[in-house]
Design a protein around this nucleic acid. Structure first.
Length: 497
RNA sequence: GCGCCUUUAGCUCAGUCGGUAGAGCAGCGGACUUUUAAUCCGUUGGUCCUGGGUUCGAGUCCCAGAGGGCGCACCA
């Protein structure tokens, strides 16, 4: 079974198997264990005994923890080892005199990576380290494969992603980032639930994936013998629920887009979408600002600033606001009339030295990215988008070429996108028809229209505001990680032998 | 898709001008009853990513390919 291993690795595995056999020969089969009574975590013990003075022992109280052996320092008839559990690392101390010569042999046969449960009392060593003096223990599982280097850890990025379990074992900051993600998402739910929203789950398999401009993944349902698509947004189904009277709904769900992979894009990612009947885009902005400020305070222990790379970003409310056209005029000097006409926007692209765009909306996106986005470091609401790039948003009452929409930018990327939802079925139908023409013109990123969505609007949708937040990118921001792969446990990698 | 970088022991990395492949950690054997990257003595371990080519001789030079990272392009 080890034919695919190199000789050196095979020898390491063989040594561990020999240790496993030795443990079993003493009636101590690690894989026969089913449970262990754990009454503390490493972090709890560190906190509970923080005041213990050097060389003092808390002999009266026995505590037990379980974890993985990360290092072992043998000194003849005693040994020190470091145990790691989900919370922290804790040093343990084992003496031959305490457990007897035969059980001490077990510790010689234990390897780095093995899982043990230990019970004993806490003391502080001569060197000042809090340590658990082991009086009893159980071997709970054996690591037959050798772990990466205890000091350098695992730095090979490819291996870290392909074997994330190794990354999590040896790189504590990786575990911390994913623990932070869990906390952030939980806090997000609490914040939303407290405002009376229903959490719902809508299908990922759809006949027509819509609600965004992106290429979908294609699949096939055998039972129906029909081709289907993986969703690229949850928007249309969530608004159907608003039509259905649920009034306040949200979904935190996996979205799939069959597009490029880079430091801010993974083909499957997590999006929060939330819709509130009787809110408009201003209510949503208020909500959005409160949510982000709350999460920043949560991860920083109450601060309103975040470290991002070399800089510090302030999230003091209110966040900056700038109009879409106003911003492009301020930083690029391009005027509204040119931007809002397809020919004018195409001419601006040329002036900027950018390649021509297939459509007006695309040209606007490119101009925005080059002119305004580089300036958006502090959290900033960009408001009042052109209708050409907002097919699902409601027009501004006094300015029908623009829509009641904003995007929140921070650290030069989009954190959220929100608008007052278009609820006029005739306008929606007209915009879908425009998309049909654009799609016929060769833009494959434009989805097929979802005509049943127009039918839903015909039954009446209350005035509603909606928002989408890229959860992965928000976690990147909140945990100061530069790549989306740092906040996705198993990022997509090419398959190889 | 394009460009740059990268791939050597289980892990982290050296490898000069093309001349028999190295270190630390881990492992193995030994000493050591408060160590902590424990220490000390001894020692095993290689598909140098793959396939071609040049050469008396290739980890090293050339070509092609594969994986990965970064940048650009793409991408609400």
């Amino acid at each position: 079974m080890n034919e695919d291993l190199g000789a050196a690795e095979a020898a390491l595995v063989a040594a561990r198997r020999a240790n496993l056999a030795a443990l079993r020969s003493r009636g101590n089969d690690p894989f026969a264990q089913t449970r262990y009574d754990v009454d503390a975590s490493a972090a709890e013990l560190r906190a509970a005994y923080a005041a213990l003075e050097p060389e003092r022992k808390a002999e009266g109280e026995q505590r037990s923890i379980a974890g993985r052996i990360m290092s072992k320092r043998r000194m003849g008839k005693t040994l020190f080892a470091d145990l790691r559990d989900r919370t922290d690392r804790l040093q343990i101390y084992v003496r031959k005199d305490d457990i007897g010569p035969e059980r001490y042999e077990d510790w010689i046969d234990l390897d780095i990576g093995d899982l043990v449960g230990v019970r004993g009392y806490m003391f502080r060593s001569k060197m000042g380290e809090l340590t658990l003096h082991v009086l009893d223990f159980a071997v709970l599982a054996k690591a037959l494969a050798p772990l990466p280097d205890k000091w350098h850890g695992l730095t090979d990025v490819e291996k870290r992603y392909r074997q994330r379990y190794l990354d999590l074992i040896v790189n504590p900051e990786v575990r911390d980032a994913f623990a932070a993600r869990s906390t952030i998402v939980a806090e997000m739910r609490r914040f939303i639930d407290a405002r009376g929203f229903f959490e719902v789950e809508t299908p990922t398999l759809l006949h027509v994936a819509g609600g965004a401009a992106a290429r979908p993944f294609l699949t096939h349902v055998n039972a129906l013998d029909q081709s289907m698509q993986l969703r690229i947004a949850t928007e249309l189904n969530l608004k159907r629920l608003i039509v259905g009277g649920l009034e306040r709904v949200y979904e935190i769900g996996r979205i799939f887009r069959n597009e490029g992979i880079d430091t801010t894009h993974n083909p499957e990612f997590t999006m929060l979408e939330l819709y509130a009947a009787y809110w408009d885009v201003h209510d949503m902005m208020e909500f959005n600002e409160a949510l982000v400020a709350h999460l920043v305070a949560g991860v920083t222990g109450g601060l309103n600033t975040l470290r991002h790379g070399e800089r510090t970003i302030s999230f003091e409310r209110p966040f900056a606001r700038i109009g879409y056209l106003e911003g492009i005029a301020r930083y690029g000097g391009f005027e509204r009339e040119r931007l809002l006409s397809p020919a004018g926007a195409a001419a601006i692209l040329e002036e900027l030295g950018l390649p021509p765009s297939p459509a007006h909306g695309h040209a606007l996106d490119k101009i925005f990215e080059h002119v305004l986005e580089p300036h958006l470091v502090e959290p900033t609401f960009v408001t009042d988008y052109p209708v050409a790039i907002s097919p699902l948003a409601k027009r501004k009452k006094d300015d029908p070429e623009l829509v009641d929409r904003y995007e929140l930018f921070c650290a030069n990327f989009e954190v959220s996108n929100a608008f007052t939802e278009l609820n006029d079925p005739d306008d929606q139908r007209a915009r879908f028809e425009a998309q049909v023409r654009e799609r016929a013109g060769g833009n494959e990123d434009i989805p097929e229209p979802d005509w049943d969505f127009v039918r839903a609007l015909e039954y009446g949708m209350p005035p509603t505001a909606g928002i989408g937040i890229g959860v992965d990118r928000l976690v990147m921001l909140l945990t100061n990680n530069p790549s989306i792969r740092d906040v996705i446990l198993f990022p997509l990698q090419r398959q190889h032998g």
